[in-house]
Amino acid sequence: MFIGAMITGALVFGIWPEMWKSYGIMGGWLSAVIIIGLCWFMNHWLGLFSNPDGKIWIDQGMPIASAGIAWAIVRFGADFTDCLPTFFLLIIGGILGGIAAYYVKQHNPNFKT
């Protein structure tokens, strides 16, 4: 899990910023296809991330988030405390989205197994 997370974090912040700077919105969109798609294949399809049945899902978004913070601190000397507002607001947003998705999956017949 550690190696998969490390490569994912490195790929996202090594490639993505340069792609959007060079090719604009299309570069950023294309980065998602290249990086997120390939990393998903490695981490979740081939199973580098251990997600046993019946357990809580650990997503590759987690290393991407921690890599973004570490990358900016090391590269630009950013102050860690400055990211906390966005950090906590996104956690609130993620919880809201997760709860909404849970209720939709419980009640929508397309998700009945």
Partner: peptide, 20 residues
């Protein structure tokens, strides 16, 4: 400040959903 990616919201969302 340091870059906070939307991946954080995604992993928290999936964590919450699978936990529930």
């Amino acid at each position: 400040g340091p870059w906070v990616d939307m991946g954080l919201a995604v992993c928290v969302g999936l964590f919450t959903m699978s936990f529930l």
